[in-house]
Design a protein around this nucleic acid. Structure first.
Lengths: 392, 392
DNA sequence: AAACTTTGTTTATCCACTAGACAAACTTGA
DNA sequence: TCAAGTTTGTCTAGTGGATAAACAAAGTTT
């Protein structure tokens, strides 16, 4: 059915517009909101008073006069409710409790290895319980739970395939929703990370963002025209399996020369192993220990990172040529190695993308680092809450 | 400035909705429009009567009764105006005159080689003149001119770079607008082709379409969520310069191993030349002559096409993994070789894309063949006209 | 202290949509 | 054949939300 338009829709949209403006520019006066949105003063007044009744906006006392009556400043009541965001990783579980502005109120992390599905769900419940009970009293309480997973999620929230967890067709959403009876949103980890950076991180000013999540594998989250693009079935962003070497290494996806075989954390570690690079005194070979070695100017490791940056650049070049984005954000674990991969990555892109694309292209590294996914899914639930709530 | 919502917007949107429904389902009664759009009968009645006054809708007499009063059927008046669409190719100029439904009323083609900018503009004027004067009398006349060009076009319509024409920073739009004083839209050839197939061709039912224009080079047009995606500056779709072989052939774009060096028409011809394939009796070596040879089951040529289909599949696989589209359309000249490239292309995609992506993926070949670009730009001007006109 | 400014509320008006009544036109079935 | 029922399309009264303009309140400026 098509969308029909009537005065109710108009009111809802305008109310959203007012709330958005207050969130964005707080503290701000009614008069200023009217001027900035183009709405009539009276309209703004009445919408604001409704929003105050709903406790989504607060008055914070008089502001500075600009040559007349002093304005009453409005604030977004970010403590009207809270959101839980969870980054369900391959070997860790990171849960955060945020207010409606994405400020982290509480945080809980669990590491594990080779947990079964049931063990992970148990841990999940524990974390959600702890976070819920730590939420301060508020009018709306915890308004939703978001979970980011390293896998393919259908538009309905079913986890279709998470290779690194060995999950297939998992209805996690129903399980959590049944337990807590609040809205649950499941989203792919890269999509969530992209959204997190767009809403709360370094991508706030941009409308066309490619978020490259470089961890064990490589996933991509696409923000196009300011909105998350999910693809026909919600499976967009599996760019890690892009061919960059036609007769290259074999990938378990069935393809050859996949990008993530050359540029992911796993690829880096594999190459380090081949070169017999040894972390000091028997530590495990991980991205962290490689970062330490790089910090000590270990030549071999530096060259390794350089190479990895270059490989990352190859895939990013492909994406840039296709999308003409405004910003590239390198996220997930590999962003911790920014220092060592930065110049070779930039170099590859400068040399190999079309000149026209470079004009407005920014290459940034995750600002929220390990929290972008959790913040992203938290943002989804917050937005969902505000949308639904404002309809009333 | 943000969009504010008021009753004028509501009316405009609903009027558009009614017109769209009539276009889509004609002949259709007022009652049916009301039921299908969810609008009130009275609302539909008044909007339809306005549209009839504006001559965009016609009544076509009574329809079949379904057990009561016979309905008055409504038709979209596709002859209320006409649109000119021009495909400005590297060595040809194809102009069409269409009605508001994209039906081709008249058509004019000129071939040339190595024309200067001024010579091309002169030809352009000639074609536009011929087409304009061939338009039947109508309330709105020719409502706009669209031009598709093989190059990078800014969002403002400036042709920034068209390597195969040797054009840089050309303000063609102003030149044509000044001459004819009607709206002119300039768009990249692949974007236009994608839109043409979406509106009038094989892509009508799909919302996430990747149109791969395989001609001298390779360009890609992206229809995402039913809308053309242009990228931050309007330069999306330069996927022809995607790296598929990291240390591969050198491209004049500065990159190595670009897709179009392996899978374009030019690449095919280059490989044919290398194999010393000879068209019969001194004909030139072109895609057409190769098609003829393939028709005669020339083994070498068949293998050549097979290889080309495979290479096309490599790039398409990359795109599919990133976008999760619903449909791939192979367009432009290479679609004439569908028969010979089809199976190897499909094979590559079946074997190398993630299983999840294959569920709903259709691979089609251009239905409008050589006309998709011209029809696409015609569609842009038609839509622009209807949008602007309905505002009044 | 008078004049001017700015803020925010109130009031009257406008406009588009909706529900429901109604007339016209047609079908069905006794 | 005609009465009852159905469907279509118009008309009217009513509703809800936006706007413009008046106005009161609370400042600043001269």
């Amino acid at each position: 059915m098509n969308q029909t338009w009537n005065q109710h829709v108009v009111k809802k949209e305008n109310k959203t517009l007012v709330l958005e403006k207050v969130k964005e520019k707080a503290p701000i006066s009614r008069a200023d909101v009217a001027q900035k949105t183009g709405l009539n003063k009276g309209t703004v007044s009445s919408l604001v008073s409704e929003l105050i009744t709903e406790q989504l906006i607060d008055e914070s006392g008089p502001g500075e006069s600009s040559g007349g009556r002093r304005p009453v400043m409005l604030l977004f009541n970010q403590l009207a409710g809270f959101s839980i965001g969870i980054d369900l990783g391959v070997n860790y579980l990171l849960g955060i409790l945020t207010d409606l502005n994405g400020n982290i109120i509480n945080e809980k992390k669990v590491n594990y290895e080779e947990f079964s599905y049931q063990e992970i769900v148990d841990q999940l419940f524990k974390i959600i319980d702890v976070l819920t009970s730590s939420a301060p009293p508020s009018p709306y309480g915890v308004v939703g739970i978001g979970i980011g997973v390293p896998g393919i999620v259908s538009k309905e929230g079913e986890i279709l395939f998470a290779p690194n967890l060995n999950w297939k067709r998992i209805h996690l959403k129903q399980v959590i929703e049944k337990q807590y009876e609040i809205p649950v949103i499941i989203e792919n980890e890269a999509n969530a990370g992209a959204y997190g950076e767009k809403k709360f991180g370094i991508g706030q000013k941009f409308e066309d963002i490619i978020y490259v999540s470089v961890g064990v594998g490589i996933g991509v989250g696409l923000i196009l025209n300011g909105k998350l693009y999910k693809g026909n079935n919600g499976f967009s962003g599996e760019s890690g399996h892009m061919t960059i070497e036609i007769n290259g290494l074999e990938c378990r996806c069935g393809n050859n020369g996949c990008w993530e075989l050359y540029a992911s954390e796993q690829a880096l570690l594999r190459r380090a192993e081949k070169l017999k690079i040894q972390p000091p005194t028997g530590e495990e070979l991980t991205l962290q220990t490689l970062n330490l070695l790089a910090e000590q100017n270990d030549e071999k490791v530096l060259r390794l990172f350089e190479e990895n940056g270059d490989y990352l650049g190859v895939g990013i070049t492909n994406i840039v040529n296709t999308f003409n984005p405004n910003q590239i954000i390198i996220g997930n674990r590999m962003s911790s190695s920014e220092k060592w991969i930065k110049s070779s990555l930039k170099n590859r892109i400068d040399k190999h993308t079309l000149k026209q694309h470079q004009n407005d292209l920014k290459i940034d590294y995750s600002q929220l680092t390990t929290h972008s996914t959790a913040l992203g899914v938290a943002a989804f639930t917050i937005e969902n809450f505000l949308e639904v709530d404002i309809k009333l």
